[in-house]
């Protein structure tokens, strides 16, 4: 499979037009329905190649876009979501600097 190709499992005659938010492989148990004792085998079944990880993130991104951004009559919510996530992200990476601005020594 080359760069920019469809997933190997995707077949247009069966699945219809390609949806980048959809997983075309054999679906496993959703993470929310996994019992605690099944968690280890569930994790071991994951495909942990960099390609698969990137694909999973891409699918999640597309799912989010389909739900909030690419709707017919969208709102301001996706922009606030992006802003919030960006705020949390940059706060986290700069936390070492922010820590020095603490007002109290003891809590």
């Amino acid at each position: 499979m080359g760069f920019g190709d469809y997933p190997a499992e995707y077949n247009r005659s069966i699945h219809g037009p390609y949806d980048p938010a959809r997983y075309y492989g054999k679906p496993d148990t959703p993470f929310g329905q996994v019992k605690l004792n099944e968690l280890i085998p569930w994790l071991s079944r994951r495909n942990k190649s960099p390609r698969a990880m990137v694909a999973a993130v891409s699918r999640a991104w597309w799912r989010w876009q389909h739900k909030y951004l690419h709707v017919k009559r969208g709102g301001i919510a996706p922009f606030f979501q992006i802003t919030t996530v960006a705020m949390i992200w940059f706060y986290t990476i700069n936390y070492g600097k922010f820590k020095n601005h603490r007002n109290y020594k003891y809590h």
């Binding site: 951004l69 709707v71 009559r73 709102g75 606030f80």
Partner: peptide
């Protein structure tokens, strides 16, 4: 065929 949603997902407090 995927259908384009009419409205975005429901949110509270704006986001």
């Amino acid at each position: 065929r995927p259908v384009r949603a009419e409205f975005g997902g429901k949110v509270r407090l704006g986001f």
